[in-house]
Nucleic acid binder design. Sequence first.
DNA 1: GGGTGCATGTAATGGGTTACATGATTCT
DNA 2: AGAATCATGTAACCCATTACATGCACCC
Lengths: 190, 190
Amino acid sequence: MKMSGGTTPNALLGLLTLKPMSGYDIRALIPQSIGHFWSESYGQIYPSLKRLASAGFVEKKTQRQKGKPDRHVYSLTEKGRGRLQEWLKLPVEQEVLRSELLLKLFFGAHVSPDVSREHVTAFMEEHDKALKVYAAIVKRLHKEDAGDPQLPFWLMTLNLGRHRSAAFVKWSRETLKELDELERAQKGGR
Amino acid sequence: MKMSGGTTPNALLGLLTLKPMSGYDIRALIPQSIGHFWSESYGQIYPSLKRLASAGFVEKKTQRQKGKPDRHVYSLTEKGRGRLQEWLKLPVEQEVLRSELLLKLFFGAHVSPDVSREHVTAFMEEHDKALKVYAAIVKRLHKEDAGDPQLPFWLMTLNLGRHRSAAFVKWSRETLKELDELERAQKGGR
DNA sequence: GGGTGCATGTAATGGGTTACATGATTCT
DNA sequence: AGAATCATGTAACCCATTACATGCACCC
């Protein structure tokens, strides 16, 4: 009955607008849809689906299969669509950044600059790779989902990822330069 | 004995390099130091300090006070400094973005474009404000901590915040434009 | 009298991942 | 023979925040 907190159930409702699915299906679909900015594990999915079903937001149908366990396929109800829309309208809570990289960099003076340089380099490579992945997905979406009314929204989410990763790569380059200068100053000043 | 997982204790060791502090002091210092990218609550700080003390990474001294409860002041030990340095050298785990804004935007086709526009606008304003805060802190640091060998590292962490927020603002502007176009197309196409 | 600051700490709660348990089928 | 895929679900655990409990001093 509660069903108040938790964005997980709302994310599930959203995914079920695409098509009726089992918990297993949902898990498998995530990397190809909201995977760049959201994740869900079985430990969240299965109990959430159960609660959504008992609250009438989704409908469960059991498909028997030979050899394999039964598939529990959930589909969105009208009530569920209503709840999804209500949730979509609610203001988004501020997201606070929590970064282990920055924490380590903040205390970087207590170790050799090489250490920080390695961290920043790894970070840069990570986001360099991410940029390529984003580009590939954008290409794929333009081909496979051309004309889909949801496509513009999907591209917007990808664009945020691109802007973000590009900014991170740029920052990394600048920071690496600064770390070099720091080290030269250190060596020169001895 | 365990003390393996958990970046919280390591963050505390880092902060204690600045000066010996009580749990209360640490909490108060965070907004002025690592606050833009890290947070800790009392529920984490006090138990962690206790464990760090019993493992010999910090040393506890009790200062009696009249009227107020005793202050438990912790200072970093040599062993603690060693552990901090070891931790600083460890590679940083990849940080996965988890964004409720993007989740809502992804499903934006199920509600009016106005809804998405409001979310994006709020996001833009949030980061516009953040940019001003960053600028103010940078100014303050240049004045108050000029010459501190840690200053360059502190500025690097702030710079990442600036790059990030600037990218988000830019994305927001572009996205708002796209949402406008979407709406015009919708209206025109009816 | 009531709020705020100092100062400690624990308990309850939430949110999430990982590991475990089960078991048939199909591919290598 | 052994791994991978399909498919469900629970239990243990980790991390973190919030609320609660205590209590004096100071200021309005």
